[in-house]
């Protein structure tokens, strides 16, 4: 009943203040794309070894710090030409992907591989341990305070509204180049991942390992290699998300992976953990719920939630997780796709 009332309120809000509502959706989609990229790493690893890699959020955070470092090392500033700026951005993106992949692969090699046949709790605790270790490493590496990334985007483009500047629309809806970039980088990566999993030999080996590890081994598949590749690919996606996040949110701090990681885990579960499409859908759901809760819910429906504040957003999102677990334990796409990963 509450959900119905909430839905009616939101529909009315969208009708009453369409531009404001659209703005929240745009912010939610951009954040959702980031969450989806991280969630894919969770779901990829879970799909193949049934492990919730709680260190994944911190792998994302380390990617963000590495991207900062790469850009700072190149010494590129906004006075340089677009080509040089783009080259530095691509270098940082690829660098953070490789760096996060290496960390994720290293964690698997050092700890998880040794615990393949241990009780499930062992690698889970191990993952939490690595999460704290990586946070501390980040504190020692860059300090505990928030860092702003070196300028890679000319300041006039930070508040640039594509709808007004490119299309001449008189609207309060704001789409910045950064909002667009987040989605435009994320979507090709998702398509590439789908292609990799569905079409390549390695992807098929990973899917076989996910279905039945022993049978895959009997068929000559190197199971450990397939699992390692899952960690490498998941890490690369986390690294890409780190690079995008550091410029999208314009800061990095050691704790950034904790909240993004939890939201991404929630997205993976809501979408159906182990299912790639589910992770993406879950990411967008969480991103939009986050955005609406932070801004829209207080005013609509009908001002009945005027006591609502942004501090309740985590409760709402984890409430979504609980509701999903209770009413659809396998998640939104958990049962509709026959094959995992």
């Amino acid at each position: 009943m509450l959900l119905v009332l909430l839905a009616i309120g939101l529909i009315y809000g969208a009708y009453d203040r369409p531009e404001l509502f659209a703005q929240y959706i745009i912010i939610g989609v951009a954040n959702g794309a980031l969450i989806a990229l991280i969630a894919l790493g969770y779901t990829l690893v879970y799909g193949i070894v049934e492990l919730i890699n709680f260190a994944h959020g911190e792998v994302f955070m380390m990617g963000a710090y590495f991207a900062l470092t790469v850009v700072a090392t190149t010494g590129v500033t906004t006075e340089k030409g677009w080509l040089i700026l783009a080259a530095a951005a691509i270098l940082a993106l690829l660098g953070s992907m490789v760096f996060s992949s290496a960390i994720n692969w290293g964690i698997d090699r050092v700890a998880y591989r040794r615990l393949r046949h241990a009780p499930r709790l062992a690698p889970l605790i191990c993952a939490i341990g690595f999460s704290f270790i990586l946070q501390q490493m980040a504190v020692y590496w860059k300090g505990g305070n928030p860092l702003s990334p070196p300028a890679l985007i000319p300041s006039e483009y930070r508040a640039y509204n594509i709808l007004q500047e490119w299309f001449g629309l008189e609207t309060r809806i704001r789409i910045r180049p950064l909002d667009l970039a987040v989605v435009l980088i994320t979507i090709p990566l998702l398509i590439l991942l789908q292609w990799f999993i569905q079409r390549t030999r390695t992807g098929k080996a990973m899917r076989a390992t996910a279905q039945d590890r022993d049978a895959a081994a009997l068929m000559g598949i190197d199971v450990n290699r397939a699992i390692s590749i899952a960690f490498i690919v998941g890490g690369a996606l986390a690294g890409a998300a780190g690079m995008i996040a550091v410029y999208y949110i314009n800061s990095a701090r050691p704790g950034m992976g904790f909240r993004y990681g939890l939201y991404a885990f929630t997205a993976a579960v809501v979408g159906g953990i182990g299912n790639l499409n589910g992770a993406v859908i879950g990411g967008f759901i969480i991103g939009i719920a986050w955005s609406l809760s932070d801004g829209f819910l207080k005013t609509y429906p009908g001002g009945h939630f005027s006591w609502w504040g942004a501090q309740w957003t985590p409760a709402l999102i984890f409430g979504l997780l609980v509701v999903t677990m209770v009413f659809r334990p396998s998640g939104i796409l958990g049962e509709t796709t026959a094959e995992k990963v």
Partner: peptide, 22 residues
Amino acid sequence: LGNDGYDPRASDYQSLMTSIAD
């Protein structure tokens, strides 16, 4: 106009600030 708490661990406050600007 309002006196609310915010989530100190969140990484993005664009929506919150959009609603406040409104």
